[in-house]
Design a protein around this nucleic acid. Sequence first.
DNA 1: AGCACA
Length: 471
Amino acid sequence: MSTSGQQQFRYTQTPSKVLHLRNLPWDCSDEELVELCKPFGKIVNTKCNVGANRNQAFVEFADLNQAINMVSYYASSSEPAQVRGKTVYIQYSNRNEIVNNQSPGDVPGNVLLVTIEGVEAGDVSIDVIHLVFSAFGFVQKIATFEKAAGFQALIQFSDVGTASAAREALDGRSIPKYLLPEHVNHCHLRISYSAHTDLNIKFQSHRSRDFTNPYLPVNPTAMEGLLQPVVGPDGKKKEPESNVLFASLENMQYAVTVDVLHTVFSAFGTVQKIAIFEKNGQTQALIQYPDLTTAAAAKDALEGHCIYDGGYCKLHLSYSRHTDLNVQAYSDKSRDYTVPESSLLAMQQASAVHAPPAVWHNPQSGPAESSAGYGAASVPGQAPTSHSSSWNPNLQGGGSTFPLAPTRYPGHSYAPPVPGYATAVNPPGSSQQINHNATDGRPFSVSQPFHPSTMPPGAVPPPGHAPYHGY
DNA sequence: AGCACA
């Protein structure tokens, strides 16, 4: 112990495959280091521009003997080691490997910093970002912002492994064109790691989202920009938008329950509230989302389509004048998913004890099978042909099944609903027609992965998704 | 000219 503090200044250091080089040019490059050292062996790592004067460096050889060769050579050479004419002093490092040759953005973490090049903030919605990154695991939080570097997003995964998988797969790639507005030509992702581990999302808004906390309040000021009249890509003014959709249902061959609507509309984001009512013999419903963007995506994708195959329960969607529904938290015809979790759980338990939990596990109503939609979460069926150079693991090999889609439902076996969700829903931004003719009884395809935060109490989260209960 | 990085 008495010599440890001095050992580094002695010539008797123990050999290491890492060499410490001094008196280098302040702007010495890795290439110059390699040029100097490679005659003696294989260099596996370097770190240059070290120290206050940036004139030191480390070089790591693959093998200890190679480092010894270099030190021995220059110890007895008449010509000193040189870089650009400067004598370079070489010693064994007191470490056995170069421990960190990474810039901060390369230090792995569970939060990714994504720069989306070639777009403006309005071109890529949080939902698109969420869809893209959800391919790799549960996305906990997203915050977007505009900086000099461009449009950026912080994307929080639950763990480093998932984040690095997403980075590996997506860095330098592009968001598929079909997820972007038509005027966007290129959209490269530059991904590094953020130093953050847990983003502090204050509100659900068009700029930020916390998928672990569906009850987070919606920021009214964050919504203001979206409440302006919107001009569509075709230049036409759209009707006043709202975060609440008004649905009128045609051809009500089957009962449409709150849970069915929840399943269908949750494909696009957190559904906050639902109310069903009858007017002039027609079934109507109001579906509340936290934001306009989500409502618009749902409206665009679902308008004119049928909940059930065969033209039954056809949806006509428009924007409601309401922005915040006042509904009974838990009734036959309405649901408030924003009421505190404890209340929901209490109600759920009460219903489990005193009555069959028909709303969650409804065996009779076939099409009302609440879990049906969860088996259906998939990347759009058009995917395999629409982007052959796909980066998305879901879209490769012609398969279009979303990896997070569950295949089993503990507690009851999954059977395709009768008559089954057969409505294929287009991805946001797509102008293609929806396939009305699917008759294979498979659950419908949705353009978004199901958000775990939108699952009804008692539902089983898809594998890899944490249930929101407990957050 | 004498040991980095978080």
